[in-house]
Nucleic acid binder design. Structure first.
Length: 420
DNA sequence: TGACGTCAAGATCCG
DNA sequence: CGGATCTTGACGTCA
């Protein structure tokens, strides 16, 4: 099994995959049923997108069933969506896709407060039931942080272990633990993992921000972590992210730098799944998959180019030309040069003249089919944008609406419409 | 008591 | 009314 690469919870620029929720006071049975139905349909579209793009790793959002583990909310999602959940799971399994879930920083199994622990167990129960309802095997994990330290880390670790032992075996089969960026470094997590037979997820950025006192290379921590993964657990998983330039330490970058990733990847064990934590989600997942492909097909880069081209054009017509000619040689696979140029382009701010030019290119899809009023609206927005009384966003919104109305799928999946 | 992180919902403002 | 922009919510720990 070669490396699988995936993304967390959400997509960028994939139609019909938006997750919805509500606030607690509106969370009645009817509202929750509607939201859950909508979210499962969104998940279905996410799976379709992943299959098409050969993404075989996906973290499902904890909010897929809103307030599912909230003590005040009672909602029989398992019964209501039994069949739909089963068929979603079947779709994922048929595609060889590995799913996971990751309760947030507020699920704390080792809290000093009994009620917090009780709710953490309820939350883990929900996550476990969700993966069970999909029919997924024990290689589909629930990732958890160890929790707080409370001024006595030894006691806190002991509490984690005691509470872990009390968990239902169905949860224990899925639970894995991860090093965090403040309290539990990788060596401490490994110690717990080895003690209790819990697989350990190594997170490279957390480790960089909050390293172990024992200094080891990333590859060594990854090798040590791999020993905590047993046959039933599936291949080892790690979390990979990059520091956002100019943001506080530990902030995830907007996109994965392809250069940094291809330097990082070769040190990984042959069977290792990599969950990316990055703002542009699936966009980076596809990038990293194509950058590490054993056999590269230029058609894949052409498909990528179709999504990026207008976002590049509005920032750098020069790079637009450079990428177009880079892809001319159909016997080549210039994946690193390609993404390098993409990253350089997306990293620059668009100037009004260039943005206007790109908008006109996009308008080209509609100029012969749009109504008179749609045409007037476009021209007026363009003029207003030129003189500063309308935003580029409003101009793009109009073009996006037209893409929806006239079913321009080529444009609907374009990153031109998303700020990534 | 507020920062931390995350996202969409909800609220408000504008024309 | 639609659209854009600002604020809130949901959670627990720690300074």
């Amino acid at each position: 099994m070669s490396m699988r690469i995936g993304y967390a919870c959400l997509t960028v620029g994939v139609p019909n995959t938006q997750l919805r929720t509500c606030i607690l006071k509106n969370a009645n049975e009817m509202v929750l049923q509607g939201l859950t139905q909508s979210n499962l349909t969104a998940l279905d579209h996410m799976l379709d997108y992943n299959i098409k793009n050969e993404i075989q790793l996906l973290r499902i959002s904890s909010d897929i069933v809103p307030f599912a583990s909230h003590p005040e909310v009672e909602f029989a999602w398992q019964e209501l969506f039994h069949e739909q959940l089963a068929s979603l799971g079947e779709k994922a399994r048929n595609a060889g896709m590995r799913l996971s879930m990751h309760p947030g920083q507020y699920t704390v199994l080792n809290s000093l407060t009994d009620d917090v622990v009780k709710r953490a167990v309820m939350d883990l129960t929900y996550h476990c039931r969700f993966l069970d309802a999909l029919g997924m095997g024990s290689e589909c994990k629930i990732i958890l942080h160890v929790g707080g330290a409370y001024g006595d880390k030894k006691a806190a670790i002991k509490r984690f272990q005691d509470n872990y032992d009390l968990l239902a075996s169905s949860i224990r089969q899925r639970l894995v633990i991860e090093n965090d960026d403040k309290i539990y470094s990788i060596d401490e997590v490994l110690e717990i993992g080895l003690d209790c037979d819990i697989p350990v997820v190594f997170d490279n950025l957390h480790n960089a921000v909050y390293p172990s006192e024992q200094q080891k290379r990333e590859s060594e921590w990854i090798a040590l972590s791999s020993e905590t993964w047993k046959a039933d657990d599936g291949p080892q998983k790690i979390h990979y992210s990059q520091q956002a330039e100019g943001k506080r330490s530990g902030s995830h970058s907007d996109t994965i730098s392809v250069h940094e990733f291809v330097n990082f990847a070769p040190q990984l064990p042959a069977a290792c799944d990599v969950m990316l934590e990055v703002k542009d989600k699936n966009i980076s997942a596809v990038k990293c998959i194509l950058a590490t492909a054993k056999i590269g097909k230029i058609e894949k880069l052409e498909e990528e180019w179709a999504r990026y081209k207008y976002a590049v054009l509005e920032r750098s017509p020069q790079n637009y030309k450079a990428i177009s000619s880079l892809l001319k040689d159909k016997s080549s696979y210039p994946v690193l040069e390609f993404y390098d140029l993409i990253e350089k382009s997306i990293g620059t701010i668009s100037e009004p003249g260039k943005a206007k030019n790109a908008a006109l290119h996009v308008w080209g899809y509609f100029k012969d089919i749009a109504t008179q009023s749609e045409k007037r609206r476009f021209e007026s927005l363009l003029e207003q944008y030129r003189e500063g009384s309308a935003t580029l966003q409003s101009l793009k919104r109009h073009l996006y609406r037209l893409s929806e109305k006239y079913r321009q799928d080529y444009l609907l999946q374009s990153l031109y419409f998303y700020d990534v």
